[in-house]
Design a protein around this nucleic acid. Structure first.
Lengths: 214, 214
DNA sequence: CGGTGTGAAATAATTCACAGCT
DNA sequence: AGCTGTGAATTATTTCACACCG
């Protein structure tokens, strides 16, 4: 059930890549896939694919490959998305609103069940079927709606304060859209998405590529 | 000027972290910072900070640390964000619109100068000072406005086709908000931001943390 | 002192390569 | 033949630890 060895961080990141590609192939009617073909579409070597999966068990058949039908639930189970996760959006600005409409959370088992903001003019309204609450309802909503994840999309200036409230309210994981490192106590996890950093990486890569091409 | 050795990918990712933190400290009035204090706020060891910077030159003063004033332009130069970059948003849906309003691109030197979509009802309108063009104007706009980066925020089903158009139009880097791997020829770079993958990472981490806590 | 820069050592992650299964 | 699973080798990245500087 549980893995014997520590799992390399990069492996976990690739697992969701594999899952998505498997779902595409299932849609397309494939019943099996080899580490080679799976890796090829993803830009990953076959050995890497086998090693990644090998950390969690033996899912393949020599001579055949992996069963698409069979591997999908295994990966969902490994990533712990074989059951649903309730989430809340905290901060209903441009990004928060876009995330409330994002169509790919639901099919993955992520359900945004509540939104929070301090702006009186939107309190009580409903966005894409999701009610906007005042911040002081956070803790009670987290409890009553079994919210375990919070999506932090507030202005930078209040990010840490709001994160503290989320931790106090009992949220277990924070998806941070703010460009600062959020400080949380042990037992709470943070994953960050930073648009400016992504563009900075791109600027570096583009310049490097141009340099390489004389 | 240019580095002697290949730069580790993780190093480049941390560089933008350092830059942001330095800007915070500059704002706060610090004139110098040590690798230890810089790393501490970022969750990075002091040796790592020194090694990362050491790839590009010698910027510190023994006994003192690094000059905040001095290191900021060095990092901007390394990341190639010491001059501006013009970018376009392709796909003005919920995410595209949020990015058009994102306030942190401008101060970093990223200027969104045009938007593109196929929806007649928004063509010709202006969003946050940025005009929405038809797709067939992409190539001419890229040339006339010197657009080097494209932000891809279209529906999944047309992502690869639109990416092809971007490459043809002469765009050099793509920031991909689509959940698939975009195939581009050599000379064009892609950096991806995938919200569902980020939530999947978070689900895994939260579950692992809960497991660890019995 | 306090702090950098950097060889050398340690650790982490990837790739090789092949035995063994279908 | 085609393909997995995995030790062993390789390569990449991080950390140690210390000479040297202000």
């Amino acid at each position: 059930m549980s893995q014997r060895q520590p799992i390399p961080r990069p492996t976990v990141k690739r697992l969701s890549l594999y899952l998505r590609e498997l779902e595409v192939r299932q849609e397309a009617g494939s019943s099996t896939v080899s580490s080679r073909t799976l890796g090829e579409t993803l830009g990953i070597t076959d050995a890497q694919v086998r090693r990644d999966l090998g950390h969690f068990g033996q899912f393949g058949q020599p001579g055949i490959g992996y069963s698409v039908e069979g591997l999908i639930p295994e990966l969902k189970s490994i990533l712990k998305i074989d059951r649903g996760w309730n989430a809340a959006v905290i901060g209903v600005g441009n990004i928060g609103r876009a995330l409330l409409h994002y169509p790919r959370f639901g099919p993955k088992g992520f359900h945004i069940v509540a939104a929070f903001d301090i702006d009186d003019s939107i309190l009580g309204t409903t966005i894409n079927g999701c009610q906007v609450h005042a911040m002081d309802e956070l803790e009670s909503c987290v409890k009553s709606q079994e919210i375990r994840m919070g999506i932090l999309s507030v202005p930078l200036s209040v990010a840490q304060d709001v994160a503290d409230m989320m931790v106090t309210a009992g949220i277990r994981g924070i998806l941070n859209f703010t460009p600062i490192r959020i400080d949380v106590g042990g037992g709470v996890d943070v994953v960050s998405v930073d648009f400016s950093r992504a563009l900075e990486q791109l600027a570096y890569q583009v310049s490097a590529a141009e340099g390489r091409a004389h």
